[in-house]
Amino acid sequence: MIKLHNVSKSFSQFQAVCSVSLSIHKGEIHGIIGASGAGKSTLLRLMNLLESPDSGKVEINGQTLTSLPGKDLRQARKSIGMIFQHFNLVANKTVFENVMVSLKLANYPKNKRKGRVMECLQFVGLESFKDKYPAQLSGGQKQRVAIARALANSPQVLLCDEPTSSLDPNTTAEILSVLKDINRLGVTIVIVSHEMDVIKSICNRVTVMADGEVYDTVSIEPTGIGSAKNTPANFVEQLTKIGGTGHA
């Protein structure tokens, strides 16, 4: 589904990604994990050419993105969804308009747009929030709007750049289960995260990165999404447990 051939990317002297080859299979949830600065986000951004590689080839769904002219690249991007750590919604557009814009960009049939927007908002459980502005939503709700926006054009691939890193554990679980649902629709998902729990809970295969290179890629059995972990009782339990075993 996604194939990277020896892609490299450097930012003024700093080698962020160093000749990485990676192949992501259709229908899987693929995790990319690593320390800060390991190049995992850059690697993800290379997949839709948000960063263009200094060398190497990026192939998605049989199309070599790196050799496409501008117009075809924009067309190809319309079937690659992307969500971000900071959601990147248009703050001056309502929830409805934020999802709508992605349909407009893709020239989705005019008379079906409204219905499609509502369908996507329903999928993420926010249909009653359609007239609200992003500033009126919580972090988890904003991310769900971003997911609805990314889903509107029925992409085959969803790229997730630290999708839960600015969310609390409850909301994280909520977003992860939405991603899981999307994957069930047949969408290939790539998740970049530095949170081991997130990666372990839903990924089928995980690439570990270090210093701009792939350290290893392993297949794992997803552990499933943990239920709410930030109930006060749970906080107390965690605190006392650590206190009990932590001292000499």
């Binding site: 948000l50 924009r74 067309q75 991007r77 992307m82 971000f84 990147n88 919604l89 814009v101 971003a146």
Partner: peptide
């Protein structure tokens, strides 16, 4: 980030200007 989201959705320069 808003500009990046626009680019990732396949927006042209004109669309980036007027829609974002």
């Amino acid at each position: 980030g808003v500009m990046e989201a626009a680019v990732s959705m396949g927006a042209s320069v004109r669309e980036i200007i007027f829609k974002f």
